[in-house]
Simulated scan of single mutants.
Amino acid sequence: MKILFAPDSFKGTMSSMRVIELLADAAKQTFPDSQLVTVPIADGGEGTVEALVTAAGGQYRTVNVTGPLGEKVSAVYGVIGGKTAVIEMAQASGIMLLKEEEKNPLHTTTYGTGELIKAALDQGIRRLVIGIGGSATNDGGIGAAQALGVSFLDRNAADVGYGGRNLCNITRIDASNMDPRIKECEISVICDVSNPLTGLAGATYIYGPQKGAGRECLELLESGMENYLQVIKQCIGMDMNQVPGSGAAGGLGAAMVAFFGASLKSGIDTVLDFVDFESLLKDVDLVVTGEGKIDSQSAYGKVPVGIAKRCKSKGIKVIAIAGCMGKDARRVFDYGIDSIMVTVNNNLSLEEALLRAGEDLFDAADRMFRLIKLGMDLKT
């Protein structure tokens, strides 16, 4: 039997490569003669650099940049073929860099993401693939733009500063001092959402609460984002609410398009094309994918469904392994996933579940392969 392992990372617990290792160990116990094909997958968030660098045999670069609250953090990006940089904004401006009590989108900035881009430019790279999932920010991407020379000015012609709290103070945008190398770049921004910049379905109201915003904070941030939307219209001539995905990463999608001329692309489809996923499916009998949680949102651009869609047309069976199932998780069956195996098998606190994540994933994979073997034996 030939099995392809293509999971996403389990956010905050295991990288996709670690998930693959555990799946492979479990598979070999039940199917010792099986042929295993492995490829880490991501959708623009955590694990994107690892997935693309692993698939293409690239290299890693480490730089010190500004974290979401202004502290210095060590961030990694990938270089492929000496010409393409793969960047995760989560490495510099991600929510995983903050403790729960530190989350506050009024203060968090994407400045470090701009510094990551600048580091790649300094290496002579002019093709950028930037994943913008997992952000801790709601600053409209002004921090990233500020790091590359764009000025956001208040009514006194002074710089407004950093963080979402300052969006309401912007009256003018001056891009005359933007790093000129940006205009030489081909920039692809990959994400798994299509939200507009403002409104009830926009960056603030949909994703602000998970970044630490309460009701009053949300109203302040949305007011600032509405102001930002209008100033971009006046100074750049673009209505960012007409650009699907402009609300991604707290509005970083809007900044990447408006100031850097980037193209917004589906995360999972871009990654699958990059790793030449179709060729990996040759003679495969079973695909095992997965992510930390499968729920109703998994049908919208997440890794398991993106993979299942490509397998379904070829008649290849797909199993998704996940930490847990949320509301309407069964919707993924409509997109080509044949079954879901959940790893948590006991009543555990969140802390216990995180500590046992690897052990429980191996146990779930072992049970999964035993069931597959049982089915094969019954068939004969």
Score class of each variant (00 low, 15 high):
Y207P: 00
Y162K: 12
L128P: 00
G212T: 09
V275R: 00
T54Q: 09
R155V: 14
I340F: 01
A144T: 12
S223T: 14
G375V: 10
D8N: 15
E102M: 11
T204L: 02
R215Q: 13
V189I: 12
V231A: 05
R172D: 11
A248Q: 00
A258F: 00
A299Q: 11
L97K: 01
D179K: 03
I132E: 04
L97A: 05
T109Q: 02
K379M: 10
I337M: 01
V257A: 05
G306Q: 03
E184M: 08
I307S: 05
I190T: 06
L23I: 07
T54V: 13
S296P: 02
K327V: 14
R126S: 13
E46Q: 09
V288A: 06
S266H: 04
V86Q: 02
A175C: 08
V303Y: 01
V342E: 09
E222D: 15
M256I: 09
T204S: 07
N345F: 04
E219P: 04
A26S: 12
S9Q: 05
F260D: 06
F31Q: 10
A262E: 03
G261M: 06
G267C: 07
I372K: 01
D338L: 05
I125P: 03
A157E: 15
A120K: 00
E50T: 15
N156Q: 15
L220N: 09
T66D: 06
R367Q: 13
D334G: 05
D159E: 15
K183E: 14
A357Y: 02
G253I: 11
T30E: 14
G301I: 10
T380F: 11
G124S: 07
L36S: 10
D273Q: 13
I80E: 09
E186K: 08
I190C: 02
Y162H: 14
Q234K: 09
K282F: 06
P7M: 10
N347T: 15
E21L: 11
E278P: 02
K265V: 08
G224A: 07
G164K: 04
I206F: 02
E291R: 08
V284N: 06
A203P: 03
D334I: 08
V318I: 01
K317V: 10
L221I: 10
S349L: 11
A145N: 04
D33G: 12
M256N: 05
N347S: 15
Q35M: 14
N227A: 09
G261T: 12
G112Y: 00
E186F: 02
D179M: 07
D363V: 13
S16Y: 03
A42M: 10
I321Y: 02
L197I: 09
I80H: 00
K83Q: 15
R155G: 07
D276T: 12
R215M: 12
Y162L: 15
A364H: 06
Q210R: 04
S349V: 09
Y111L: 14
A55E: 10
G78Q: 03
S339T: 12
L200I: 14
E88K: 03
